[in-house]
Design a protein around this nucleic acid. Structure first.
Lengths: 164, 164
DNA sequence: GAAGATTGTTGTTGACGACAACAATTGTCG
DNA sequence: CGACAATTGTTGTCGTCAACAACAATCTTC
């Protein structure tokens, strides 16, 4: 099979002759272990799924939550400012705000200073709703602690603080 | 928590009257800081972009790399086994393999033991190509070290080891 | 041998990032 | 001042990806 081929550890050769049962957890990942990106991706999938499930009753996804949080903490921001701060494309933010505005959580106010832009604000309903979302998000965060450990979660936040 | 709007720190109310300039980096994230999911998402975006850029010349994306790596380390696996191991939907893996097979990096061999399934193998070209991909991936990993620090990267891998 | 499960495949839906084009408005600079 | 460039929100397209659902071929189980 090889032409010198620097393969590392072909552990089981169960493909052809032998019909050996292979449990998914005994398959070697080889070089994948040791790649930060892979671990981070798997973790991110887990954490998002838990977030979506925990905030399932209120039907709020992570991105929506981040938008509401930023507007709540900085009323009057333009769409451009919010998009830049969260690393979202402004085109994408349009749809997010359309949805949040339909649900009466956010309102776009025409800015008088710059008639091109909209000043974003939470509605009253949006503020009380966000308070509830924050409680649920805190619950989700406790799930993370339970999963990786309180100390490890703190470490993680410290390590990745530069990316927020 | 209360219906009396427990907003935490509406720092600047720059929306309407005042036309104050707001730099993107002085916008408060409020509750978003302290959410592991947000930090992880931003970091994952950064790390994937660097991976894609570093492996840009060979046109290999992170998911493709993970598939090649697992097949290389465990020749003869079925599509189902690979999908389960990597947390990919088997429907999605079909397209990934279509692409990799067109590029002559992977071949689907009809399994004699179970005629429903395919035994997955790297081609000769696939093996030498993967060796090159691994060198580039190692380079990418050095970028990660340069970004967050060698010690922090090791910590991160340790913390997230359970998700691989 | 019949009923049920598994494997690969095709298709659809929706969230998301990246890009391009456009009208309205603002800023700049000759 | 007035022409030209830049910005803001919007619409649209394209490609990636997760989540389902349905299906034929094949295996497993009773």
């Amino acid at each position: 099979m090889t032409a010198t081929a620097p393969r590392t550890s072909p552990r089981k050769r169960a493909g052809n002759g032998t019909a050996r049962r292979i449990d998914a957890d005994e398959i070697g990942l080889d070089a994948l272990v040791g790649h930060a990106g892979y671990a981070v991706r798997r973790f991110q999938i887990w954490i998002f799924q838990d977030f979506i499930r925990t905030l399932g009753d209120v039907d709020i996804r992570p991105t929506q939550y981040s938008v509401l949080t930023v507007i709540g903490a900085n009323p009057g921001l333009s769409q451009m400012a919010v998009a830049k701060r969260l690393g979202i494309e402004r085109a994408r933010l349009v749809h997010l705000l359309d949805s949040l505005e339909q649900r009466k959580l956010v309102k776009r106010v025409k800015s008088k200073a710059d008639r091109r832009s909209h000043a974003l604000h939470l509605t009253i309903k949006g503020e009380t709703a966000l308070a509830k979302f924050k409680r649920l998000a805190a619950e989700h965060e406790r799930h993370v602690e339970a999963k990786i450990g309180k100390e490890n979660r703190a470490q993680l936040l410290r390590i990745l603080a530069g990316f927020t």
